[in-house]
Design a protein around this nucleic acid. Structure first.
Lengths: 209, 209
DNA sequence: CGCTGTTTTGCAGAGTGTGCAAGAATGCAT
DNA sequence: ATGCATTCTTGCACACTCTGCAAAACAGCG
């Protein structure tokens, strides 16, 4: 009765292979360039067949960033829904941050991911697109949140949904700009981006309104 | 001395081929689905070789949307810079709208593009990514604009640039949400999206601050 | 018509990504 | 340990996107 996540050799080996391929992909991209780091070359370095590569990652770019599932963690959503603050913008930004972070594996090997993103900012845009693809699901979540907000009480459900989508997109946009600065600022804790993103967004919006 | 844009047969024929391939791509995508509309099939329908297809479009998706250059029109930027209002958000939204519209050819064949976008919303995200790719150039433009704004007078150039990037991303995000509703609302004039995008954005932002 | 520059096309090839079926490894029960 | 079921890996064939190159077709012009 061994279905998944058995904590045994299976799971550990799978996680190890995952990390090996990720490391191979990221290092190779840094060494020979993203376009010259082919799937075959990455697979060779990771000692797996190129077919196995695609059993772990949906694309070369996902491997270079170490992006896993592509699924939204329902537990994370539930946790965030139970711990809301009185600041909607903050909550939505947390949701976005959580989705981004949850989909990538921990970068043990130093600042591999930081260097990759520094060299290839396009990959950041890819990340954002991934979250955009989940926006139907996330929009419903934020829409629910808004229904308990006094300021949105008078809205119809559709209006709330549209507002939720705007909020999501806007937070995502801010997150991207903030993360774009991160690779160049080696001292900063990754988690600080999340805080800075919201602050920056709020400051700018105040000035144009 | 016939280099480019001679107004003769050359130019007209090229424009015609462009539209033919676009129509073939969009129609085929609607008929058999985006994933089953291969470049070969599109080229066959347009009576060109698949090699010629790539002389006109950089990718299958670009053909389905009728996306041309990928270049920012410097004239359009200059025109917008000379006709600024006292509403920065409005100006930035106009810039974003202009870049999006300028890169696509006019859709003569009824609501071809509308139906394509209705069936495949992912393509909208692609459009947005295209604009994101120009954000270095556009960020400089908006940064310049901000330097004449009293509220941003005290900022350093870097801060202004970061604010410009935030504004761009935010307007882009709003535009996407607004355009996402457009395909389902057949009566609406495309240009109204641009107005609605900014209005919606402003309304939502007022309520969360 | 003949000269010049542009466009189209076929071809060869690199690269991504998928389905399938055989074989290897793992976990578990006996 | 041995056998059995499940899962993982791999090779292979294949479809598809996209690029470089060189030959051929074509437009424009004297």
């Amino acid at each position: 009765m061994n279905e998944i996540a058995d904590g045994g050799i299976r799971e550990r080996k799978r996680a190890a292979t995952f990390r090996t391929i990720y490391a191979a992909a990221a290092e190779l991209a840094l060494e020979v360039g993203l376009e010259h780091a082919t799937v075959d070359a990455i697979s060779d370095r990771a000692n797996v067949s190129s077919r196995t590569f695609f059993n772990y990652f949906a694309s070369k770019e996902d491997a270079v960033l170490g992006i896993d599932s592509g699924e939204v963690s329902e537990e994370a959503i539930a946790h965030l829904s139970d711990n809301r603050t009185d600041d909607v913008l903050h909550d939505v930004a947390s949701l976005v941050y959580s989705v981004i972070v949850d989909s990538t594996i921990v970068d043990e090997s130093g600042d591999l991911r930081r260097r990759v993103l520094e060299k290839y900012p396009q990959l950041l845009t890819r990340q954002i697109m991934r979250v955009s693809a989940m926006e139907d699901r996330l929009g419903l979540v934020v829409g629910d949140w808004l229904s308990t907000e006094p300021k949105f009480a008078s809205c119809t459900p559709e209006e709330r949904l549209e507002a939720a989508q705007i909020l999501l997109s806007v937070c995502l946009a801010a997150m991207r700009v903030a993360m774009k600065k991160w690779p160049r600022d080696t001292s900063t804790d990754p988690h600080e981006n999340y805080t800075r993103a919201v602050d920056l967004l709020r400051t700018v919006l105040e000035r144009v309104s």
